[in-house]
Computed example of a mutant assay.
Amino acid sequence: MVRRFRGESHHKVDAKGRVSIPASFRRVLEAGDPNWTDGLNPELVIVYGDERRKQLECFTMDAIADVERRIEKMPRGSKKRKALQRLYNTQSLPTSVDDTGRLVLPQKLREKIDLDNMAFFAGNGDTFEIWKPETYETEMDADLEGDDEFDPEADPSIYLDGEEEG
Protein backbone atom coordinates (compact mmCIF):
# COMPACT_ATOMS: atom_id res chain seq x y z
CA MET A 1 0.00 0.00 0.00
CA VAL A 2 1.26 3.46 -0.91
CA ARG A 3 1.68 5.81 2.02
CA ARG A 4 -0.12 9.15 1.72
CA PHE A 5 0.21 12.58 3.33
CA ARG A 6 -2.81 13.02 5.60
CA GLY A 7 -3.75 15.52 8.27
CA GLU A 8 -2.82 19.02 9.28
CA SER A 9 -0.59 20.52 11.93
CA HIS A 10 1.14 23.68 13.07
CA HIS A 11 4.91 23.78 13.64
CA LYS A 12 7.25 26.45 14.92
CA VAL A 13 9.79 27.96 12.49
CA ASP A 14 13.04 29.07 14.09
CA ALA A 15 15.19 32.06 13.09
CA LYS A 16 17.26 29.88 10.73
CA GLY A 17 14.16 28.66 8.89
CA ARG A 18 14.15 25.19 10.43
CA VAL A 19 10.74 23.58 10.87
CA SER A 20 9.88 20.09 12.11
CA ILE A 21 8.03 17.88 9.64
CA PRO A 22 5.13 15.87 11.08
CA ALA A 23 6.40 12.37 11.89
CA SER A 24 3.77 10.71 9.68
CA PHE A 25 4.87 12.93 6.77
CA ARG A 26 8.49 11.84 7.29
CA ARG A 27 7.42 8.19 6.91
CA VAL A 28 5.76 9.04 3.57
CA LEU A 29 8.90 10.90 2.40
CA GLU A 30 11.00 7.84 3.28
CA ALA A 31 8.65 5.48 1.45
CA GLY A 32 8.61 7.80 -1.59
CA ASP A 33 12.40 8.09 -1.90
CA PRO A 34 13.85 5.13 -3.84
CA ASN A 35 17.36 5.96 -2.52
CA TRP A 36 16.34 6.08 1.15
CA THR A 37 17.51 3.43 3.60
CA ASP A 38 17.76 3.39 7.39
CA GLY A 39 20.31 5.95 8.50
CA LEU A 40 19.81 8.24 5.49
CA ASN A 41 17.67 11.38 5.30
CA PRO A 42 14.85 11.27 2.74
CA GLU A 43 14.98 13.69 -0.17
CA LEU A 44 12.08 15.74 -1.49
CA VAL A 45 11.34 18.60 -3.87
CA ILE A 46 9.72 21.84 -2.74
CA VAL A 47 7.83 23.60 -5.54
CA TYR A 48 7.38 27.29 -4.76
CA GLY A 49 6.16 28.60 -8.12
CA ASP A 50 5.54 32.21 -9.05
CA GLU A 51 3.64 35.00 -7.30
CA ARG A 52 0.29 33.21 -7.78
CA ARG A 53 1.29 30.46 -5.35
CA LYS A 54 0.88 31.34 -1.70
CA GLN A 55 2.14 28.01 -0.40
CA LEU A 56 5.04 25.62 -0.79
CA GLU A 57 4.12 22.26 -2.29
CA CYS A 58 6.33 19.34 -1.25
CA PHE A 59 6.75 16.21 -3.37
CA THR A 60 8.31 12.84 -2.61
CA MET A 61 10.95 11.80 -5.11
CA ASP A 62 8.52 9.25 -6.58
CA ALA A 63 5.76 11.86 -6.92
CA ILE A 64 7.99 14.42 -8.65
CA ALA A 65 9.29 11.69 -10.98
CA ASP A 66 5.69 10.98 -11.98
CA VAL A 67 5.14 14.68 -12.73
CA GLU A 68 8.32 14.77 -14.81
CA ARG A 69 7.22 11.70 -16.81
CA ARG A 70 3.93 13.44 -17.61
CA ILE A 71 5.74 16.60 -18.72
CA GLU A 72 8.12 14.62 -20.94
CA LYS A 73 5.14 13.16 -22.83
CA MET A 74 4.06 16.65 -23.93
CA PRO A 75 5.28 18.11 -27.23
CA ARG A 76 8.72 19.64 -26.82
CA GLY A 77 8.51 23.42 -27.14
CA SER A 78 4.77 23.60 -26.42
CA LYS A 79 3.68 26.43 -24.14
CA LYS A 80 2.06 24.00 -21.69
CA ARG A 81 5.26 21.96 -21.44
CA LYS A 82 7.37 25.11 -20.97
CA ALA A 83 5.05 26.39 -18.25
CA LEU A 84 5.12 23.05 -16.42
CA GLN A 85 8.91 22.76 -16.76
CA ARG A 86 9.28 26.26 -15.35
CA LEU A 87 7.05 25.42 -12.39
CA TYR A 88 8.33 21.95 -11.50
CA ASN A 89 11.98 22.25 -12.55
CA THR A 90 12.94 25.92 -12.32
CA GLN A 91 10.71 27.21 -9.51
CA SER A 92 11.55 24.34 -7.20
CA LEU A 93 14.14 23.34 -4.65
CA PRO A 94 15.52 19.81 -4.23
CA THR A 95 16.33 19.26 -0.54
CA SER A 96 16.34 16.67 2.20
CA VAL A 97 15.10 16.23 5.73
CA ASP A 98 17.85 16.90 8.28
CA ASP A 99 19.02 14.48 10.98
CA THR A 100 16.45 15.82 13.45
CA GLY A 101 13.42 15.50 11.14
CA ARG A 102 13.32 19.13 10.06
CA LEU A 103 13.31 21.04 6.81
CA VAL A 104 15.48 24.09 6.42
CA LEU A 105 13.44 26.62 4.45
CA PRO A 106 15.68 29.21 2.79
CA GLN A 107 14.92 32.88 3.42
CA LYS A 108 13.73 33.27 -0.19
CA LEU A 109 10.99 30.67 0.31
CA ARG A 110 9.96 32.02 3.72
CA GLU A 111 9.68 35.54 2.28
CA LYS A 112 7.73 34.28 -0.72
CA ILE A 113 4.90 32.95 1.46
CA ASP A 114 5.42 35.52 4.25
CA LEU A 115 6.30 32.77 6.71
CA ASP A 116 7.55 33.92 10.08
CA ASN A 117 7.37 31.95 13.33
CA MET A 118 4.67 29.34 12.58
CA ALA A 119 4.02 27.03 9.61
CA PHE A 120 0.84 25.15 8.74
CA PHE A 121 1.25 21.70 7.15
CA ALA A 122 -1.63 20.33 5.05
CA GLY A 123 -1.59 16.76 3.72
CA ASN A 124 -2.83 16.29 0.15
CA GLY A 125 -2.31 12.60 -0.49
CA ASP A 126 0.68 12.51 -2.83
CA THR A 127 1.99 15.93 -1.74
CA PHE A 128 1.84 18.20 1.27
CA GLU A 129 1.74 21.97 1.49
CA ILE A 130 3.38 24.43 3.84
CA TRP A 131 1.44 27.65 4.44
CA LYS A 132 1.51 30.70 6.63
CA PRO A 133 -1.41 29.73 8.94
CA GLU A 134 -3.33 32.97 8.38
CA THR A 135 -3.01 32.69 4.60
CA TYR A 136 -4.28 29.11 4.67
CA GLU A 137 -7.34 30.18 6.65
CA THR A 138 -8.28 32.83 4.07
CA GLU A 139 -7.31 30.82 0.95
CA MET A 140 -8.34 27.24 1.74
CA ASP A 141 -11.75 27.44 0.05
CA ALA A 142 -11.03 30.18 -2.50
CA ASP A 143 -10.23 27.68 -5.27
CA LEU A 144 -13.53 25.85 -4.71
CA GLU A 145 -15.71 28.72 -5.89
CA GLY A 146 -16.92 29.40 -9.42
CA ASP A 147 -17.69 25.85 -10.58
CA ASP A 148 -21.31 25.22 -11.63
CA GLU A 149 -21.05 21.53 -10.72
CA PHE A 150 -19.65 22.11 -7.24
CA ASP A 151 -21.59 23.14 -4.15
CA PRO A 152 -19.21 24.56 -1.55
CA GLU A 153 -21.91 24.15 1.12
CA ALA A 154 -22.30 20.37 0.56
CA ASP A 155 -20.33 17.62 2.31
CA PRO A 156 -17.52 16.92 -0.22
CA SER A 157 -17.88 13.15 0.21
CA ILE A 158 -20.97 13.26 -2.04
CA TYR A 159 -18.65 13.75 -5.03
CA LEU A 160 -17.20 10.26 -4.58
CA ASP A 161 -20.45 8.68 -5.78
CA GLY A 162 -20.44 7.80 -9.47
CA GLU A 163 -16.94 9.14 -10.15
CA GLU A 164 -15.14 5.82 -10.40
CA GLU A 165 -13.39 5.11 -13.70
CA GLY A 166 -13.80 1.71 -15.34
Score class of each variant (00 low, 15 high):
E137P: 04
P133N: 08
D98N: 09
D147H: 14
G101E: 04
D143R: 09
E111R: 15
T95Q: 05
L109E: 05
N124H: 05
D126M: 12
Y88R: 07
A142L: 09
L93Y: 09
P94L: 01
T138W: 11
E139K: 10
E145T: 10
D151S: 14
L87H: 09
I130K: 03
G125K: 03
L93V: 01
F120Y: 13
S92F: 02
D98A: 05
P133W: 09
V97L: 06
E137Q: 13
L115E: 11
E139S: 08
G125C: 02
Q91S: 02
D148Q: 13
T135R: 11
A142Y: 07
E145P: 03
K108L: 04
E139W: 11
V97T: 12
V97P: 11
P106S: 03
L115Q: 06
G123W: 03
E149R: 15
M140D: 05
R110W: 04
L105K: 03
K112H: 15
L115W: 03
R102Y: 05
E139N: 11
V97H: 07
P94T: 03
F128H: 04
L105E: 00
L87C: 05
E139P: 09
P94I: 00
Q107F: 03
G101V: 04
E111D: 13
P94Q: 05
A122N: 08
D141G: 13
F128L: 01
K108F: 04
M118G: 00
A142P: 08
K108M: 05
N117A: 09
L144I: 12
G146D: 12
A119R: 06
R102L: 02
A119P: 01
N117F: 08
V104R: 05
D148W: 10
K112Q: 08
M140P: 01
G123D: 02
L93P: 00
G146S: 08
E145S: 14
R102C: 10
F120Q: 10
L87E: 06
L109R: 00
L87P: 00
Q107S: 11
D116W: 07
S92G: 01
K108I: 04
A122K: 08
E111H: 14
W131N: 10
T138K: 15
S96A: 10
V97E: 07
G125F: 00
L87A: 06
P133C: 13
S92C: 01
N117Q: 12
M118Y: 02
G123V: 00
D148E: 13
E134C: 11
D126C: 00
D116H: 14
E149V: 12
L115Y: 07
D148I: 08
V97N: 04
D148P: 15
N89A: 08
K108R: 10
K108N: 05
D98M: 05
E137T: 13
